[in-house]
Amino acid sequence: MNYTILIVDDDMAINDMLVKYLRKNGYITYSAYSGTEALLFLEKQKVNLIILDLMLPGLSGEQVLAEIKKTKNVPVIGLSAKEDSKSKIFLLKNGADDYVTKPFDIEELLARIETILRRIYENQYTSNSLLCCGDLNLDTIGMEATLKNQKLPLTKNEFAILKMLMEHPQQVFTKDMIYEQLWNEALEGTENAINVHISNLRKKIAAIDNSKSYIKTVWGIGFKMDI
């Protein structure tokens, strides 16, 4: 499962550091630099976890947390330079799942993220190792794909791309996001590699079922599952 994490911190250096580190460790990341930006983003996009700085411009982290918890059941890790126990107790009582004090050890933060995600999602996804989209099935443990009960022969990268799309069927993935997730590095002038993989996937799918596209192009943005 490629978990998605929203990082809400107005400190661009910290935000960028977390993005790079978490992507290197297999996570899909998004950034917001204010509470308002984060709330607007969450109206359109689902995530699996939020890292929320408390000292934000405009809406405070505490206010953002309260707004998130009104409508969403998503785990939140609070970040703050405040070391007093009252701040920690307030956050934990008002919906935060954990609290990390700045400056923090990034490996410790990663361990806390993994613990929360495992606790909340492990049981859900252990029983859901089979991803389905219509007649298209992906066995993420057996590493096999079938379409209309026929085996779909995929390369390692094709399987990884299809898995990413099927795990988040409502989400649009840019070429940059796909490339960084597969190769853990920024996309620099080699977007044709993604086009080739998507094209090959579509050809293999169409050879079995050409009644629908399964992989939809969202023009000017990227790709998503056609459900």
Rank of each mutant, 00 (worst) to 15 (best):
G134V: 05
L187Y: 10
Q45G: 00
L59V: 03
M1G: 10
L162Q: 08
D209T: 14
Q124L: 11
N25V: 10
I208W: 14
G189F: 13
L54M: 04
T140M: 05
G58R: 02
D53R: 01
A111M: 05
V74N: 02
E37Q: 12
I51F: 00
L165N: 05
I51N: 02
Q181H: 10
I161M: 11
T190K: 14
Y179F: 10
R23G: 10
K102Q: 01
R112Y: 05
R23T: 11
N25G: 10
Y121C: 02
L54N: 04
L91S: 05
G58I: 04
F173M: 09
T174H: 09
N137R: 06
N210D: 15
G61T: 01
L110T: 04
E107F: 11
T29N: 01
N123A: 05
M17T: 14
G134F: 03
N15M: 14
T146E: 09
I5W: 14
I51L: 10
G78T: 05
N15Y: 13
I28D: 07
I7S: 13
G58E: 03
T146S: 12
Q45I: 08
S85G: 06
Y27Q: 13
L59H: 00
N73P: 08
K69P: 02
M166H: 07
Y33P: 07
S80P: 02
N48F: 04
T101I: 08
Y33I: 06
T155L: 02
Q170R: 12
N200T: 13
N123Y: 01
L22I: 11
A66L: 05
T190C: 10
L117I: 07
I68L: 06
S211Q: 14
N137C: 03
L52T: 00
E108L: 11
K82V: 11
Q150K: 07
R23P: 04
G58D: 06
I68P: 05
F41M: 09
T217S: 15
I106M: 12
L131K: 00
S127N: 01
Y179H: 12
L56V: 08
K88C: 01
D176H: 13
R119E: 06
R118D: 09
A13V: 15
D98V: 07
K203A: 14
A13E: 15
I51Y: 05
E62G: 07
K175T: 09
C132S: 12
G220H: 14
F41K: 03
V64L: 03
K93V: 00
E122W: 08
A160E: 08
K203P: 08
M225G: 04
K72Q: 05
K72H: 01
T71N: 06
E108N: 10
K148R: 12
K24I: 15
K72V: 01
N192M: 13
E144D: 01
Q170H: 13
K102H: 08
W219Y: 15
